[in-house]
Design a binder for these strands. Structure first.
Length: 696
DNA sequence: GATCCTCGAGTTCC
DNA sequence: CTCGAGGATC
């Protein structure tokens, strides 16, 4: 090796070490030593050396952070140790309950917790082999995520090489996020370049990390903080979680300086309050704090529930509230003619998004909260998603016209508005005469759970109805490519796609067809019951409702006496369909207009009739689903359960046999725990059905 | 007649 | 997700 090359090698090694040291000071210690210009100077010098002596270029060189070639799509990484989710607490009493559960499991005195802020970013896993960063992945469903190594390589807060003493295999779990100030600056650049701005730092971080082109990620100001470990080979673990964090910091990982060790519930509450009050002054968004039992030995004893550790909890901050002005209270007309008042709001940024509309449910609700147009109101995002008007912060001018009055005629079709005694909702009496109801009926017909016609959304339905191309669902099947292609923003290609999906919807199961008709009170469940009972559309149309009502009554009486004698009850006729729903069916099916539509639809769609015969492996069991399952869609799970003869219900009660949980928190789980209902996760479910199938 | 359980309907934003 | 109302049950 010649002298020049040897010198270059030394210089390159020096520059690399210096650059990583500056990254460390900047991102991990928040104590920069070099100026940006000095840093850039060193980086350019290193690039020059590496281009003159390509063999000196190493994978962990800071020059490799600029971003590789764009990918077609991300690969999948199976996490060697699953990335779990956390139990949540939303109130002091829930946190106290968590603390009590830990004490009750045999822990005398105050429990020591490691406390950290809960970053509002994206969880990722970083894998280091012999100290070198080799792979990074998103959390995904916890079991496997997307391979975003190329993107994470560009994040300067993530060391490409750990300091000496790193275990041979070392997986670090942490959060990728964006600082608020850097997010603002990014948005400013986006604005200047005429590109789309991001709503909040979280979305910006998520969007940047999921870029297929790492060169884009490279110019986004992403940060990283570590908070835990995955797979570790080649080293003993420290005794406590706080020691793990200290260890990560020593190895050069950014770890939040806000971390602390607290004693017992009181200490935890103090930490929570202090973070809550300092929240606005932090450089980044947090949505709560996380407490973990500090002793790793105790953690191991406590183990896991479903997919969350029992030793940790996220105590979330109360939903953020904001004040804004109601500019107007409008009326929306639903599928069944329900008139729903909606508050139009002066756009306000709350809970991470800009809110402009909020439902006010009904007239009584408006009276109860005493809302007038022009009032300044408090808005929050209830249950994390749906905007809710909490109440009046300051009354507006309140001119007589500002008070909400439910109109006496439908704002769309001018038909009379009727509010039945004891009902909360006011309804337009126009039926299919009302354009709004016709449009909603079409949308419902095409919706995913009904006939599932992809591409037939609001925009298209509006135009089809306004241009008199379709009045009822039956007309959809008569549409021609030529007609659709004339609609705004639709060419021949999209028109053909729409026709294809309309054709694909022919022959759907009878239950979907019945549901799609949109008979008041007949939802998915009732539609299934009807399909199973009548088997065909013809027999449903011929049904003699008063006879069925009679038969049902006598069946119920017979069952009651069987029960008294301790016998097993016979299956109930049309279970869940009582007098009201029968009346609704009778009325709907008697209308000549509806019958015409149904006959025309039956002609073009030929719904698949139901052949009797049911599986019974899980007969009589009731399941409730909650959260997202790692490997199957909710609907899939539901179908599977039903095909095995069990029922899927939407809320947990003492009659529930199993709660199949994907996530680890939420009302359904709380109820299930309180009632002692068995909670299983996806793998538990697979085991269960395997066992039952195998055992019978 | 009361109570518990379930389902249906409406809803927001990206 | 939440509310309200219908249905089942005692």
């Amino acid at each position: 090796m010649n002298a020049a090359s040897d010198q270059a090698r030394k210089r390159a090694a020096f520059l690399r070490a210096e650059l990583e040291r500056h990254n460390y000071r900047y991102y991990a210690l928040d104590d920069p030593e070099a100026s940006d210009a000095e840093y850039d100077g060193m980086l350019r010098e290193l690039e020059k050396i590496e281009s003159s002596y390509p063999h000196l270029r190493t994978a962990d060189s800071p020059t490799q952070r600029v971003g590789e070639k764009p990918l077609r799509q991300f690969g999948t990484v199976v996490h060697s140790v699953p990335m779990l989710s956390l139990l949540n607490a939303f109130s002091e009493s829930e946190l106290a309950a968590f603390n009590r559960r830990i004490s009750d499991s045999g822990c005398a005195g105050n429990i020591e917790y490691s406390a950290e802020p809960k970053f509002d970013g994206l969880a990722v896993s970083l894998r280091y082999e012999n100290g070198e960063f080799v792979r990074g992945a998103t959390r995904g469903d916890g079991a496997s995520g997307e391979d975003v190594t190329g993107n994470l390589r560009t994040v300067r807060a993530i060391p490409l090489r750990l300091r000496n003493g790193a275990p041979s295999i070392f997986e670090i779990r942490g959060e990728v996020l964006m600082f608020r100030a850097e997010f603002e600056a990014l948005n400013e650049r986006q604005r200047v370049n005429g590109e789309k701005e991001f709503v909040n730092p979280r979305n910006a971080a998520a969007g940047s990390l999921r870029q297929l082109d790492p060169r884009v990620t490279a110019v986004r100001p992403l940060r990283f903080f570590a908070y835990g470990l995955g797979e570790v080979v080649g080293s003993e673990l420290p005794e406590s979680h706080s020691a793990v964090l200290d260890w990560l910091a020593e190895l050069g990982m950014p770890v939040s300086v806000e971390r602390a060790v607290v004693q017992g519930l009181d200490g935890a509450l103090r930490f929570y309050r202090s973070m809550d009050s300092r929240r606005a002054r932090l450089a980044f968004d947090i949505d709560g704090v996380v407490f973990k039992v500090n002793s790793l030995a105790r953690q191991q004893e406590l183990g896991f529930v479903a997919r969350a550790p029992r030793f940790a909890i996220a105590y979330k901050f109360a939903a953020e509230e904001a004040n804004t002005i109601i500019t107007a209270i409008d009326i929306q007309v639903g599928r069944t003619g329900t008139l729903t008042p909606v508050a139009r709001l002066e756009p306000v940024f709350v809970g991470g998004v800009t809110v402009t509309n909020a439902t006010l449910h009904n007239e009584d609700e408006i009276r109860r909260k005493d809302l007038w147009a022009g009032d300044t109101v408090i808005v929050r995002r209830a249950g994390d998603v749906i905007p809710e008007v909490v109440g009046v912060a300051k009354a507006g001018p309140r001119k007589p016209a500002d008070q909400f009055v439910m109109p006496s005629e439908c704002p769309i079709c001018k038909s009379a508005v009727i509010r039945l005694d004891g009902e909360a909702a006011a309804r337009c009496s126009g039926g299919l005469f009302c354009v709004a109801q016709r449009k909603q009926a079409l949308l419902h017909f095409a919706s995913r759970r009904a006939m599932d016609i992809e591409g037939l959304g609001e925009k298209i339905v509006d135009q089809l109805v306004d241009r008199k191309l379709a009045d009822s669902p039956a007309d959809i099947y008569q549409l021609r490519v030529k007609e659709i292609a004339l609609l705004d923003r639709l060419g021949d290609k999209s028109a053909q796609n729409l026709i294809d999906s309309i054709n694909a919807s022919r022959g759907r199961p009878l239950s979907r067809f019945i549901f799609a008709l949109g008979i008041p009170g007949i939802g998915e469940e009732a539609a299934k019951v009807l399909a199973r009972h009548f088997h065909s559309l013809d027999s449903l149309l011929l049904a003699d409702w008063s006879a069925i009502a009679e038969e049902k009554k006598s069946n119920q009486r017979a069952n009651a006496s069987r029960k008294r004698r301790g016998e097993i009850a016979a299956p109930q006729i049309l279970e869940g369909i009582g007098p009201e729903l029968m009346a609704s069916l009778e009325k709907f099916l008697a209308l000549a207009q509806n019958r015409e539509i149904i006959h025309a639809l039956a002609e073009s769609t030929k719904p698949e009739e139901v052949i009797a015969g049911t599986a019974t492996v899980l007969a009589g069991k009731t399941f409730v689903l909650t959260g997202t399952l790692p490997n199957m869609a909710r609907d899939q799970a539901k179908e599977m359960i039903e095909s095995l003869g069990a029922r899927v219900s939407s809320s947990v009660s003492s009659k529930t046999d199993f709660v199949l949980a994907g996530d680890l928190s939420g009302g359904k789980l709380e109820t299930a725990r309180a009632l002692g209902v068995r909670i299983i996760d996806e793998s538990g479910f697979m085991e269960l059905i395997g066992k039952i199938r195998g055992g019978t």
